Computed example of a mutant assay.
Amino acid sequence: MGFTTLVSATTLQALIEQRQSLVILDASFDLADVTAGERSYREGHVPGARYVHLDRDLSAPKTGRNGRHPLPPREAFAETAGRLGVTARTQVVVYDRQAAMFAVRAWWMLRWLGHDAVAVLDGGLAAWQQAGGTLDTAVASPAGLAPYPPRAPLVNSVDAASLLPRIGLARLIDARAPERFRGEVEPLDAQAGHIPGARNRFFKDNLDPDGRFKPAQQLRREFETLLAVRDPSQVVHQCGSGVTACHNLLAMEIAGLCGSALYPGSWSEWSSDPSRPVARASVGA
């Protein structure tokens, strides 16, 4: 089964030395400068890593009503996974330079294809360097393999139409920064505010000061306090565009609270339709 949530930098070093069937993905990105992640990759990355771009590789074209980072069809992402060298027998490790906020999207999407052996590098590139890992500037060429054979998804998702009648019934967790959640600012999307009934769990609250994920038991206590539900399958995660919500999904997996769902369209899709309800008062913490 391999690693399915996190790997440490030292574990990744060992996997590389053992010449395991391994694909390393650098998912670094910047919402304000969509070329910055690829530039930073070219300046230095984990040896052998391939670059995966949020807009080109992990999203479908935008229509104005489907959110800022809509999911591509599974068949299209299966082709991307094959191009990156992922097979059913591959251990994938994904990282970024931004507290795992983009790496988690690739983690979730590979699980969406049915690929279990995918994990996030705990602490990202900074942890790799702190562990003595070297950087490489060589751009890895595409593997060009056949499309990944999609299996049954290992994750759950919901769309806006199915979420709307569940408002007030599902436990909805919003991963955005508190000021955006409260509707005080909105730098990216059509409206300020949040989906009614949502509770706020800023994705960076999953991390210790060193940028690594908090211990599993601590994450479990924090999420159980926030959720006040026994069944994680009743939980739906969202954020601005379906990216950092995956951070909370990963944190719950680490905590052993498995089975919650992602609303991929998230606030950017929800707020694009003025007929959908919007809230601006704080709910939860």
Results as ranks from 00 to 15, higher is better:
L262D: 00
H237C: 06
C258L: 15
A279I: 04
S266N: 05
I254S: 06
R230S: 14
P264W: 01
G259A: 13
V283W: 10
L227G: 04
V283D: 07
P264R: 02
A251P: 04
G256Y: 10
M252R: 07
S233H: 15
R276I: 07
W267N: 00
S260N: 11
C258A: 12
E224A: 15
H237P: 00
M252K: 07
L250V: 02
G240L: 07
W270S: 00
V236E: 00
P274K: 08
D231R: 14
F223M: 05
G259W: 08
P232G: 03
G265W: 01
D231Y: 14
G242R: 01
C239M: 15
L262C: 07
A279V: 05
A255L: 13
V283Q: 13
C258E: 14
L227R: 07
A245F: 03
A261T: 04
V278T: 08
C246G: 06
N248V: 02
V236K: 00
G259N: 12
S260C: 12
A261Q: 03
S271A: 10
R276V: 03
C246Y: 02
Q234T: 13
C258R: 15
A281M: 13
T244I: 09
L257W: 06
R230V: 14
F223I: 04
S275E: 11
L226R: 08
P232K: 01
V243L: 06
E253C: 09
L249E: 02
E224M: 12
L250E: 00
A228D: 15
H247R: 11
A255Q: 09
C258D: 15
P232T: 05
P277C: 11
H237Q: 08
A251D: 02
V243S: 02
S272K: 05
A281G: 13
A279L: 09
E224C: 13
W267F: 11
L249N: 03
S233N: 13
A279F: 05
L262T: 01
V243C: 02
R276K: 11
F223D: 01
T225D: 15
G259M: 15
Q234W: 12
C246P: 07
L227W: 08
L250Y: 03
V235Y: 07
T225C: 13
Q234C: 10
V236F: 01
W267L: 02
E253F: 10
V278Y: 07
H237L: 06
P277Y: 09
S266Q: 07
S272M: 11
E269K: 02
L227A: 10
T244W: 05
A281Y: 12
A255P: 08
T244D: 10
D231F: 11
T244F: 07
V235Q: 07
V278Q: 12
D273W: 11
R280A: 12
L249G: 01
T225H: 13
A279N: 05
S282L: 12
G259C: 13
H237I: 11
V243Q: 01
V278S: 11
P277L: 12
C246D: 04
S275K: 14
S272P: 06
V283P: 02
P264E: 04
S241C: 15
A245H: 03
A279P: 04
V243I: 11
W267V: 01
L227Q: 05
S241L: 09
P264G: 04
